[in-house]
Protein backbone atom coordinates (compact mmCIF):
# COMPACT_ATOMS: atom_id res chain seq x y z
CA UNK A 1 0.00 0.00 0.00
CA UNK A 2 1.09 3.41 -0.82
CA UNK A 3 0.55 4.74 2.68
CA UNK A 4 3.60 3.29 4.35
CA UNK A 5 5.71 3.93 1.29
CA UNK A 6 4.64 7.53 1.38
CA UNK A 7 5.64 7.93 5.01
CA UNK A 8 8.99 6.38 4.41
CA UNK A 9 9.67 8.51 1.34
CA UNK A 10 8.72 11.58 3.32
CA UNK A 11 11.21 10.60 6.03
CA UNK A 12 13.90 10.03 3.45
CA UNK A 13 13.18 13.33 1.76
CA UNK A 14 13.48 15.06 5.09
CA UNK A 15 16.75 13.39 5.82
CA UNK A 16 18.15 14.19 2.38
CA UNK A 17 17.17 17.81 2.85
CA UNK A 18 18.42 18.35 6.36
CA UNK A 19 21.54 16.32 6.05
CA UNK A 20 22.44 15.83 2.43
CA UNK A 21 25.50 13.84 1.46
CA UNK A 22 28.13 15.86 -0.31
CA UNK A 23 27.41 16.58 -3.94
CA UNK A 24 23.99 14.98 -3.96
CA UNK A 25 20.57 16.58 -4.04
CA UNK A 26 17.39 14.56 -4.30
CA UNK A 27 13.71 15.19 -3.91
CA UNK A 28 10.32 14.61 -5.51
CA UNK A 29 9.87 16.15 -8.93
CA UNK A 30 6.68 17.68 -7.64
CA UNK A 31 4.81 17.40 -4.39
CA UNK A 32 1.79 15.81 -6.02
CA UNK A 33 3.65 12.61 -6.69
CA UNK A 34 6.13 11.46 -4.12
CA UNK A 35 7.01 8.37 -6.11
CA UNK A 36 8.94 10.20 -8.79
CA UNK A 37 12.15 11.86 -7.69
CA UNK A 38 14.85 13.81 -9.37
CA UNK A 39 18.40 13.60 -8.13
CA UNK A 40 21.38 15.74 -9.03
CA UNK A 41 24.70 14.03 -8.67
CA UNK A 42 28.00 15.81 -8.83
CA UNK A 43 30.72 13.90 -10.59
CA UNK A 44 33.22 12.69 -7.99
CA UNK A 45 36.39 14.70 -7.78
CA UNK A 46 39.52 13.27 -9.25
CA UNK A 47 37.67 11.24 -11.84
CA UNK A 48 36.94 12.08 -15.41
CA UNK A 49 33.40 13.00 -14.39
CA UNK A 50 34.64 15.65 -12.00
CA UNK A 51 32.66 18.86 -12.03
CA UNK A 52 29.64 17.53 -13.88
CA UNK A 53 26.17 17.77 -12.42
CA UNK A 54 24.18 14.81 -13.67
CA UNK A 55 20.40 14.71 -13.30
CA UNK A 56 18.65 11.37 -12.81
CA UNK A 57 15.09 10.17 -12.30
CA UNK A 58 14.16 7.77 -9.53
CA UNK A 59 10.85 5.97 -9.83
CA UNK A 60 9.60 4.20 -6.73
CA UNK A 61 7.20 1.25 -6.75
CA UNK A 62 4.02 1.52 -4.64
CA UNK A 63 5.37 -1.15 -2.28
CA UNK A 64 8.61 0.70 -1.62
CA UNK A 65 10.79 -0.06 0.37
CA UNK A 66 10.05 -3.73 -0.29
CA UNK A 67 10.91 -3.24 -3.93
CA UNK A 68 13.80 -1.17 -5.28
CA UNK A 69 13.28 2.04 -7.22
CA UNK A 70 14.34 2.38 -10.82
CA UNK A 71 17.01 4.88 -11.64
CA UNK A 72 17.68 6.53 -14.94
CA UNK A 73 20.02 9.34 -15.87
CA UNK A 74 18.26 11.98 -17.91
CA UNK A 75 21.47 13.34 -19.37
CA UNK A 76 24.04 11.82 -21.68
CA UNK A 77 26.45 9.70 -19.76
CA UNK A 78 28.92 7.31 -21.29
CA UNK A 79 29.79 4.79 -18.64
CA UNK A 80 30.26 1.00 -18.52
CA UNK A 81 27.49 0.54 -15.94
CA UNK A 82 24.90 2.82 -17.50
CA UNK A 83 22.76 1.65 -20.39
CA UNK A 84 22.69 3.91 -23.39
CA UNK A 85 19.16 5.01 -22.46
CA UNK A 86 20.39 6.17 -19.05
CA UNK A 87 19.26 3.27 -16.89
CA UNK A 88 21.68 2.53 -14.09
CA UNK A 89 22.87 -1.02 -13.60
CA UNK A 90 24.10 -1.61 -10.07
CA UNK A 91 23.40 -4.60 -7.92
CA UNK A 92 21.81 -2.60 -5.11
CA UNK A 93 18.95 -1.69 -7.49
CA UNK A 94 18.13 -5.29 -8.34
CA UNK A 95 15.36 -6.98 -6.41
CA UNK A 96 16.42 -10.17 -4.70
CA UNK A 97 15.42 -12.85 -7.13
CA UNK A 98 16.20 -11.21 -10.42
CA UNK A 99 19.73 -11.30 -11.57
CA UNK A 100 20.25 -9.84 -15.01
CA UNK A 101 23.98 -10.43 -15.02
CA UNK A 102 23.79 -13.84 -13.43
CA UNK A 103 26.42 -13.72 -10.76
CA UNK A 104 25.46 -11.36 -7.99
CA UNK A 105 24.91 -12.88 -4.61
CA UNK A 106 21.75 -11.94 -2.83
CA UNK A 107 23.77 -10.03 -0.28
CA UNK A 108 24.41 -7.24 -2.74
CA UNK A 109 20.85 -6.83 -3.85
CA UNK A 110 18.06 -4.60 -2.76
CA UNK A 111 16.77 -4.84 0.77
CA UNK A 112 14.41 -2.51 2.63
CA UNK A 113 17.22 -1.18 4.78
CA UNK A 114 18.70 0.46 1.72
CA UNK A 115 17.66 4.00 1.00
CA UNK A 116 17.81 6.71 -1.60
CA UNK A 117 20.93 8.08 0.02
CA UNK A 118 22.69 4.74 -0.12
CA UNK A 119 21.68 4.23 -3.73
CA UNK A 120 22.99 7.60 -4.75
CA UNK A 121 26.23 7.08 -2.88
CA UNK A 122 26.66 3.78 -4.65
CA UNK A 123 26.07 5.54 -7.92
CA UNK A 124 28.74 8.10 -7.09
CA UNK A 125 31.16 5.32 -6.32
CA UNK A 126 30.13 3.60 -9.51
CA UNK A 127 30.95 6.77 -11.44
CA UNK A 128 34.34 6.86 -9.80
CA UNK A 129 35.06 3.19 -10.30
CA UNK A 130 33.29 1.58 -13.22
CA UNK A 131 32.84 -2.12 -12.89
CA UNK A 132 33.69 -3.26 -16.38
CA UNK A 133 33.09 -6.90 -15.60
CA UNK A 134 29.33 -6.55 -15.63
CA UNK A 135 29.02 -3.95 -18.31
CA UNK A 136 25.66 -2.54 -19.23
CA UNK A 137 27.24 -0.53 -22.00
CA UNK A 138 29.75 -2.80 -23.67
CA UNK A 139 31.25 -0.09 -25.85
CA UNK A 140 31.92 2.06 -22.84
CA UNK A 141 33.47 -0.83 -20.95
CA UNK A 142 35.74 -1.63 -23.86
CA UNK A 143 36.81 1.94 -24.25
CA UNK A 144 37.34 2.27 -20.51
CA UNK A 145 39.64 -0.71 -20.59
CA UNK A 146 41.51 -0.08 -23.78
CA UNK A 147 41.33 3.57 -24.69
CA UNK A 148 41.16 5.48 -21.46
CA UNK A 149 42.06 8.79 -23.10
CA UNK A 150 39.19 8.62 -25.47
CA UNK A 151 36.87 7.62 -22.66
CA UNK A 152 37.93 10.59 -20.60
CA UNK A 153 37.45 12.89 -23.52
CA UNK A 154 33.87 11.73 -23.97
CA UNK A 155 33.29 12.03 -20.25
CA UNK A 156 34.54 15.59 -20.28
CA UNK A 157 32.25 16.43 -23.15
CA UNK A 158 29.33 15.07 -21.16
CA UNK A 159 30.42 16.97 -18.08
CA UNK A 160 30.42 20.15 -20.11
CA UNK A 161 27.05 19.33 -21.59
CA UNK A 162 25.57 18.55 -18.19
CA UNK A 163 26.55 22.02 -17.02
CA UNK A 164 24.93 23.58 -20.04
CA UNK A 165 28.20 25.10 -21.21
Amino acid sequence: MAGSALKRLMAEYKQMTLNPPEGIIAGPVNEENFFEWEALIMGPEGTCFEGGVFPARLTFPPDYPLGPPKMKFTCDLFHPNIYSDGRVCISILHAPGDDPMGYETSAERWSPVQSVEKILLSVVSMLAEPNDESAANVDAAKMWREERDKFEEIAEKHVKKSLGL
Binding site: E45, G46, A107, S125, A128, E129
Partner: peptide
Amino acid sequence: EVPPANPPGNQTMNHFFHFDGSRYVS
Protein backbone atom coordinates in the same frame (compact mmCIF):
# COMPACT_ATOMS: atom_id res chain seq x y z
CA GLU B 1 24.25 -19.03 4.19
CA VAL B 2 26.16 -15.97 3.23
CA PRO B 3 29.49 -17.24 1.94
CA PRO B 4 32.17 -16.98 4.61
CA ALA B 5 34.62 -15.16 2.41
CA ASN B 6 34.32 -13.53 -0.93
CA PRO B 7 37.01 -14.30 -3.45
CA PRO B 8 39.81 -11.75 -3.40
CA GLY B 9 39.33 -8.92 -5.83
CA ASN B 10 35.59 -9.06 -5.40
CA GLN B 11 34.57 -5.43 -5.25
CA THR B 12 31.09 -6.00 -4.06
CA MET B 13 31.21 -4.55 -0.61
CA ASN B 14 32.23 -1.04 -1.41
CA HIS B 15 28.84 0.60 -1.40
CA PHE B 16 30.00 3.52 0.65
CA PHE B 17 33.34 3.66 -0.93
CA HIS B 18 33.54 7.11 -2.39
CA PHE B 19 31.36 8.99 -0.10
CA ASP B 20 33.10 12.29 -0.72
CA GLY B 21 34.48 11.22 -4.02
CA SER B 22 37.78 12.94 -3.44
CA ARG B 23 40.35 10.35 -4.11
CA TYR B 24 43.30 12.55 -4.84
CA VAL B 25 42.65 15.80 -3.13
CA SER B 26 41.65 14.75 0.27
